[in-house]
């Protein structure tokens, strides 16, 4: 028996969420006294054996190239491995791909499914884990009634731990299946940092007065290696793309540092960002609700504060 973890790759490279998931699987397997098996799909540019550094004992590389839009094919291939390995617990990062394949996998394996998990199981018989609920406004302790369980791990919720371990690597040919969905074109925003995985997020709201003023937001983000985000009104008016909308009905983010510029901090916005470890707010209005939720704040005009902040961070970077 082992804990199985899907080691997602994108363009052949493992993602941050993958290392979080492998670490999580290893920690949980240790508690259960079993081994950790990672499974990859498709051609890898990265070395599969490096997953041993995060606690995998064995890596099974599915050789079939299955497109990520083929959720059925991906979940079927992982299910083959889960059955072969007798895995009662499968860990998947709750990324775009993970969200699509994990529920299908749970149905295939006749397993319970719990998503947005933020901690290792507090109990193993039955499995009980803490997950996010009400779009970040609360946590739920959920219990799985089945002897098998698929857990989808919330991004940035679990720290990556390197173990200096090593993993054996084997190859596996899964059954070939015909995909019901085909990819016809991919449009990539190059150099963009994935919001879900970003360590730092710089976000701005209506206080910026217009899309032409986003230059300083992007400059600050680039300087910090951060992702850029925005509030709902800003994406609704079309100043910024929908993909940048964070909040209860947009993306949920959980970076180390969240900088909110000209965002008042409506309850719907806070729900999507309050898992951030440190929050900074810059707003002209001292009554803005965000000041009640943030860790640090500057009451002032973004058009004056942000350029000065950029300058100070540049100085800091030059000296550190």
């Amino acid at each position: 028996m082992s804990v199985l973890v899907f080691a997602e790759s994108w363009d052949g490279k493992f993602k941050k969420g993958t290392f979080e998931a492998v670490t999580y699987a290893h920690e949980t397997a240790k508690k259960l006294g079993v081994s950790t098996t990672a499974v990859t799909i498709g051609k890898l540019a990265d070395d599969a054996a490096q997953l041993g550094n995060y606690g995998a004992d064995k890596v099974i590389c599915i050789s079939n190239n299955i497109n990520t839009c083929d959720s059925q094919g991906m979940s079927a291939a992982i299910a083959e491995i889960a059955n072969k390995e007798g895995a009662s617990l499968v860990i998947i990062a709750n990324s775009n791909t993970g969200k699509t394949i994990a529920p299908r996998l749970a149905v295939k394996l006749s397993a319970g499914f719990i998503s947005n998990v933020v901690d290792t199981p507090s109990n193993d018989t039955p499995f009980t884990v803490k997950k996010k609920a009400f779009s970040g406004k609360a946590f739920e302790n959920a219990q799985c009634n089945n002897d098998k369980c698929v857990l989808a791990l919330a991004p940035n919720a679990f720290h990556i731990v390197e173990t200096a371990g090593s993993a054996t690597v084997e190859s596996f040919d899964a059954a070939n299946r015909v995909s019901k969905v085909t990819s016809t074109n991919v449009e990539k925003a190059t150099g963009k940092i994935s919001l879900a995985e970003a360590e730092i997020v710089v976000s701005a709201g209506r206080g910026l007065k217009g899309p032409e003023n986003w230059g300083m937001v992007e400059e600050l983000a680039e300087l910090l290696g951060a992702g850029t985000a925005c509030s709902k009104p800003v994406s609704d008016i079309g100043w910024r793309p929908h993909a940048e909308h964070v909040g209860q009905t947009g993306k949920a983010v959980a970076p180390n540092l969240y900088i909110a510029i000209g965002i008042s901090g409506a309850i719907q916005h806070l729900a999507g960002v309050n898992s951030s470890k440190v929050m900074v707010v810059i707003n002209t209005d001292p009554e803005a609700p965000f000041f009640k939720s943030a860790d640090y704040g500057i009451i002032g005009d973004a058009f004056e504060v942000v350029p000065r902040l950029i300058e100070e961070i540049r100085n800091f970077k030059a000296n550190n």
Binding site: N96, K180, V181, T182, S183, N185, V186, E187, T190, K192
Partner: peptide, 12 residues
């Protein structure tokens, strides 16, 4: 659909 850092066109 939205994918990591971009969008993808699909047929089915």
């Amino acid at each position: 659909r939205e994918i990591e850092g971009g969008k993808e066109s699909l047929s089915a």
